[in-house]
Design a protein around this nucleic acid. Structure first.
Lengths: 195, 195
DNA sequence: GACCTAGACTTTGCTCCCGAACGACTCCGG
DNA sequence: CCGGAGTCGTTCGGGAGCAAAGTCTAGGTC
């Protein structure tokens, strides 16, 4: 994505569109760059170290979580990997079909499912993670350790802000608004009445 | 995603798995937090200001690009929005079906397609963008303007690093490796031989 | 004009992604 | 033992998302 326009001109165009409606540009630039950086890093890594093992970013993250923390319940894996449990079902299915993870029933609770790495999965992660970390070092190459720490800390504060106050904030914003559901999502099964 | 383990313990677990293989933890934390923050911000915004207009994050970004820069060729919109042109085709179709953008043929080059906002799209962005920016301000609430600037700058350096040296780096890494294609992707049409 | 090469958009195949609905199961009170 | 409330993983619906293949157009050469 080499087409980024200079920031100064973007600000000028926004003013041209909105007149004097006040806009906070530092915050806008930061949010924009978070997404640009995330996409760029993800694609670089998928196209280098992960390609050879036919893994996606998410697949790798799930493997990583189970590798580090050992056999664990799927809902915890999803939380740790930062994906929804619905998504995890599909990702785990893919990884299972590649022979990298194994599902087990929970010994005492019939609702739960445990996820663990197979021998192949373990072996793969042992060789893959150092390569993955090398790419993390590459993409952050222009920054010092201290700058990485500071940036990581700032980003964590954003995550914490949303975790702590996001729900409340969304409730305020939707205060009294129509409870518009997503366009997507499963539809309830019709009760008997014909339409 | 409230399930984050403390960093110190994560580092300990990695050492337990890899022994003395050296790992750079600052870079690892930064890359991880980039993705966590990106996902958190995206979900917060989709579930607040975008929900009412039935827009996805990507849909909004595409609208934003066309709103700010005016009618432009699809490949430039894709580059500016940070998505592939294949993805843009679908997103533009969705937005067109909602009556927010309009496709026009290029006046002199029949291969190109121009994208522009409709009146509805223009009106929507005028009211939506300030709300969007307010959420950007909310999620970065714990940070000062100066910290936002610094963080945005660090993230930009990551993007630039990948833009400038990513291709070269990937070439080095894959040097002589089997040209493993993605598992996904269109398959060539079989030449006449049945399988 | 037929031919070729390059460029721009679209289609295709597979995966990811969320959130709501769902069914199976656990827990608890009666 | 039954039934309701709550939890857990899965299914489902709509939509990204990429890269490679495919289609169509532009512009040049013979």
């Amino acid at each position: 994505m080499p087409g980024q326009r200079p920031i100064a001109e973007t600000e000028r165009m926004i003013r041209a569109k909105l007149g004097d409606t006040p806009i906070r540009h530092e915050q806008m630039a930061m949010v924009g760059n978070i997404h640009r950086a995330a996409a760029a890093v993800r694609q670089h890594v998928e196209n280098s170290v992960l390609r050879g093992s036919d893994l996606t970013w998410t697949g790798f993250v799930v493997l990583w979580v189970v590798w580090i923390w050992g056999e664990m319940e799927t809902r915890l894996v999803a939380a740790e990997a930062g994906i929804s449990k619905g998504t995890l079902t599909g990702v785990a299915r893919t990884l299972e079909s590649r022979g990298l993870v194994r599902r087990t029933e929970h010994p005492s609770d019939g609702r739960r499912v445990l996820l663990a790495l197979t021998g192949d999965g373990e072996e793969l992660m042992r060789s893959l993670f150092p390569e993955f970390n090398a790419e993390e070092v590459f993409v952050t190459g222009p920054l010092t350790d201290e700058e990485c720490r500071r940036t990581a800390d700032a980003l964590r504060q954003v995550v914490v802000q949303i975790e702590n106050h996001g729900e409340e904030r969304r409730a305020e914003l939707l205060d009294g608004a129509p409870p518009v559901p997503r366009r997507s999502g499963r539809r309830p099964r019709r009760a008997g009445s014909g339409d």
